[in-house]
Simulated scan of single mutants.
Amino acid sequence: MIRALLLTGAALAAAPLAAQDHSMHGGHDGAATDVAPAEMDHCAMGHLPPEQCPPKSGAQVEPEPEPAPKQPEMDHCAMGHLPPEQCPPKTGSAAHGKMDHSAHGMGTDKSAPGAAPESAVPARALAGPRYAADAIWGAEAMAPSRAQLARENGGMKTGMVLVERLEARFATDRGGKDGYVWDAQGWYGGDISRFVIKTEGEGELGGALEDAEIQALYSHAIGPFFDFQGGVRLDAEPETRAHLVLGVQGLAPYWFHVDGALFLSDKGDLTARLEAEYDQKITQQWILQPRIEVELSAQDIPEREIGAGITKIEPGLRLRYEIVPEFAPYVGVEYEAKLGQTADIARADGKDADGIKVLVGLRGWF
């Protein structure tokens, strides 16, 4: 009886020890197998997203505490420091430990605090010689290259002939006379300096030539949009007379084409003329052009029936159709009026001081 009680007590004492898992301790007998050390469970440590971890089983293993996070590395791709082609493609899960500063609203200037802004030009950039290549190749060897560069960037010689107006005019009143007008110019030279020829005149259809002039001018750019012009003008009708010419021509604000000049004749008469026009595109081929021309005189010129002051004004409207940019017929209407003393002189001679005319003409260039 005593032996049975001792055996039962020994069995009960050994049961808890047998329940322990000694599989990781290795066997103590010859038949024991080698067991590899356990790998780190990244899912339990929270290093991987849930979709990349296996489903949890019934038996849970208490995860080890996470180590202290490392200092995050700067993500130059997210901060916009590198072009997109040098950055890896974005995936659904960002790399662990990378901080994304793309949403922090950083400015365009990424220079260090206290440093000069990126837009600042270093002083050493302007400290060198004007022509650094001269120090290596010599000024004599580089001069032809610089001259060639200037010719290819604005110094090339080109030319053009523009017939601005070549038109017939038909009077709408009984006392008016039908006539014709031409207004053309041509030039040859570069973007800065060029030689310009201008000519214009008018007369009666089937009648005598009333006015005709030609100008020879030197034109030099005084800004991005305007040229200064100076030269001579020769009148063939109504009488031969020479003038000195000073003027400007160019593109005024709001895209108005402006041509103004002062004329000093060989008889001391000072006159002026101002022309302005604007091309309003209705379509790519239909263009509406308002135009105005004003003439002035500083004194009376009796032989030309001109009085001092504003002598004539011609506002008009032309609608042209560009079959090609170089060839455009047009129709229009124009009001011509003599003003002041010039109008008084015309009325005294039995002539109309003003009138409206219908225009049919052609504009072209080559």
Rank of each mutant, 00 (worst) to 15 (best):
K98V: 01
P129Y: 02
D300N: 12
I136H: 11
P88R: 14
D227R: 02
P67C: 05
P67N: 11
G260R: 03
G231A: 07
G250D: 03
E164I: 01
L262I: 10
H25P: 00
A18V: 13
P253L: 01
L319F: 01
R318C: 04
R130K: 14
A10H: 06
K157W: 14
W182D: 05
G92H: 14
D34I: 05
P84Q: 12
R233H: 09
D75N: 14
P83F: 13
C77M: 14
V61H: 04
G159K: 02
P16R: 02
R146E: 03
C53Q: 08
G223I: 02
V232G: 08
G201C: 01
P63S: 06
D41W: 06
A103H: 04
D75Q: 09
D109R: 12
G97S: 06
H104T: 07
K281H: 01
I136F: 14
Q249W: 03
S111Y: 00
H28R: 11
L5F: 10
D34L: 09
C77Y: 13
G80R: 06
H47Y: 10
V258M: 08
D191T: 06
E118D: 00
P55I: 06
A298R: 02
D109A: 09
G260Q: 01
E62D: 03
T91L: 15
G355N: 07
A135W: 04
H220Y: 10
E213T: 08
H42L: 14
Q215F: 08
Y131V: 11
G58Y: 06
A78L: 14
A343S: 12
L251T: 05
L17K: 02
A38V: 00
G309K: 05
T158E: 10
L126D: 09
R318P: 03
M156S: 07
K351E: 15
G223M: 06
A10V: 11
Y188R: 10
G250L: 01
L209A: 01
D259H: 07
P65M: 06
